[in-house]
Simulated scan of single mutants.
Amino acid sequence: MALMPARDIYHNAVTHALVKAGWQITYDPFRLQWGTKDMYVDLGAEELVAAEQQGQKIAVEIKSFIGPSEIEDLRNALGQFILYRTILEATEPERMLYLAIRDATYFAIFEEPVGQLLVQQQHLRLIVFSPDQEEVVQ
Rank of each mutant, 00 (worst) to 15 (best):
A2M: 07
L3T: 14
L3K: 15
L3A: 14
M4G: 09
P5H: 03
A6L: 14
R7G: 11
D8Y: 11
Y10Q: 07
H11F: 09
N12E: 07
A13C: 03
T15Y: 06
H16S: 15
A17F: 03
L18T: 02
L18S: 08
V19K: 12
K20P: 00
K20Q: 03
K20C: 05
G22V: 06
W23F: 08
T26F: 03
T26E: 03
T26H: 04
D28F: 06
P29S: 09
F30A: 02
Q33T: 02
G35K: 14
T36A: 15
K37T: 05
K37N: 07
K37P: 00
D38Q: 15
M39D: 04
L43N: 08
E47D: 10
V49S: 12
V49F: 05
A50G: 08
A51L: 13
Q53K: 15
Q54P: 08
Q54F: 05
G55W: 07
Q56W: 01
Q56T: 03
A59P: 07
A59M: 04
A59G: 04
V60A: 13
V60Q: 09
E61N: 12
E61K: 09
F65D: 04
I66W: 08
S69G: 00
S69Y: 00
I71W: 10
D73I: 10
D73W: 02
L74W: 05
A77H: 07
L78H: 04
G79P: 05
Q80L: 09
Q80S: 12
I82Y: 01
L83W: 01
R85D: 01
T86S: 15
I87Q: 12
E89I: 04
E89C: 10
A90T: 06
T91A: 14
T91K: 11
T91F: 01
E94K: 02
R95E: 06
M96F: 11
L97H: 07
L99Y: 03
I101C: 07
R102S: 13
A104Y: 06
Y106I: 12
A108H: 02
A108N: 06
F110E: 03
E112I: 07
P113H: 10
V114Y: 02
V114Q: 10
Q116T: 06
V119S: 13
L126T: 00
I127Y: 04
V128N: 12
S130W: 05
P131G: 09
Q133V: 09
Q133M: 15
E135G: 13
V136H: 09
V136G: 08
V137L: 12
